[in-house]
Write a protein that binds this DNA or RNA. Structure first.
Lengths: 230, 230
DNA sequence: TCAAAAGTGTTCACTATACACCCATGG
DNA sequence: CCATGGGTGTATAGTGAACACTTTTGA
């Protein structure tokens, strides 16, 4: 029979690791740091930290993300808890992985430098320490699934963006080419974007209209039974 | 700058709680235990336990499930890690929730009794201790999503089953009525079931053909790019 | 004037859904 | 012989995918 004598139970170290995704005109990227501390000094890893006694996991993840990006109010979701016994060579440590989506233009570049962090295109990610490769793999899989059914893509874009940008984003996430006309008519059919009068003239000569994701309109539609689907 | 002095970091108790789903002709059920130990003695809860130092989470979940059901080789998936600071009144404890799907007929009924456990229809589940309600809610949501895209429903059925049974199962999981003809033609279209010559005569006078889920055929189709979808 | 990116509709195949009657059998 | 649950097909609407030309304008 189970006892309630908690003192007999083993305690463990609990870490968090964050997979931080960003997007720019080169494609979908992930933020990694070059460790200047042991173990595995000099190698690339996800950013992480330990859970503090008085924190809940979400708070700890926010703290860790803020330390590297300077951002708060980041989209973030718990991913999975990794528990292989020897995943950390120093001491038994479990790690709760979180993934986050940020507007790559909005983060604090100085903080990134200070932490010897760097954005990597997904296809250029080096071998990571510990089980961080598995974490990244799982995060990519989750992002792909989520992006199809929740409007989380917008978290990766600035407040206003063009249709070609949005399409490239989804092409990066889903890792396949999409048809321009089908994509635009599908997105417009969702009726959750508002087109501004302004154009972005930096990419093409013709210029591309800017759009904004209308969260209120989206939330209202969800209440009415609408399901986002791309 | 982050340090590698692990000894400064806080350690925590790590529990596991299992949401065990089963299905019979009454519907989709969850297995709960009436606690005969403090805290919250006498109230209903999920079955749980603590992670041991030398275990990975999946092993611990298997151990806990086996203790109550007598089964091994159970379908099981990590769900989420719950971390509210005061979720356990005795001591700061995080809990990793797992959900499991079992054939309700195959489990060990004596073990269930010894542990004062009981199967509850989802709609009859009483208020649970701690944050177990949230765990169950999340497990149901996950089960609903997974059941649409992975053939996990069969984990809840005996080795052989009838079409009406299978349909009732999916109706319970998805919580909506399905059309008999559409359901059958969709399922048959997947081409992952084999119909036996045998009939189940226990429910109707006419009898209903028995089917078996052909895992090899399914796995081969997945390799060939097939996607399960119900 | 031309290169480079933006914008715009239609057709077709397929999938999802709605729907009603006959069959087999034990009691 | 009849009540009960098992089994079967078709028509329609909606969604997803393929596909090509015109517009704008800075260089």
């Amino acid at each position: 029979m189970e006892l309630n004598d908690y003192s007999k139970e083993d305690k463990v170290l609990l870490a968090l690791d964050c997979i931080i995704f960003g997007f720019d005109n080169e494609g979908l990227k992930v933020l990694l740091i070059k460790r200047n501390f042991e173990p595995e000094k000099g190698r690339w890893s996800l950013i992480g930290g330990f859970l503090k006694k008085e924190e809940i996991l979400d708070q700890a993840a926010i703290r860790i993300l803020n330390r590297l990006t300077g951002l708060d109010d980041i989209f973030m979701e718990q991913l999975y808890t990794f528990s292989k016994v020897d995943r950390d060579p120093v001491e038994r440590t479990l790690s709760v992985a979180y993934y986050a989506l940020i507007d790559i233009a909005a983060h604090d570049k100085k903080l990134i430098q200070e932490n010897s962090a760097k954005w990597f295109l997904l296809e250029d990610v080096p071998k990571l320490i510990f089980d961080h490769d598995k974490m990244l793999e799982r995060a990519i899989a989750r992002l792909r699934r989520r992006a199809r059914t929740k409007p989380i893509g917008f978290e990766l874009l600035p407040d206003t963006f063009t249709m070609p940008q949005l399409q490239k984003l989804y092409e990066s996430i889903l890792d396949k080419k999409l048809d321009k006309r089908n994509f635009i008519s599908k997105v417009n059919g969702l009726d959750i974007l508002v087109r501004l009068d302004e154009k972005d003239m930096t990419v093409s000569k013709k210029g591309a209209f800017l759009y904004r994701f209308d969260k209120e309109m989206y939330d209202q539609k969800v209440v009415d039974g609408f399901n986002f689907k791309i």
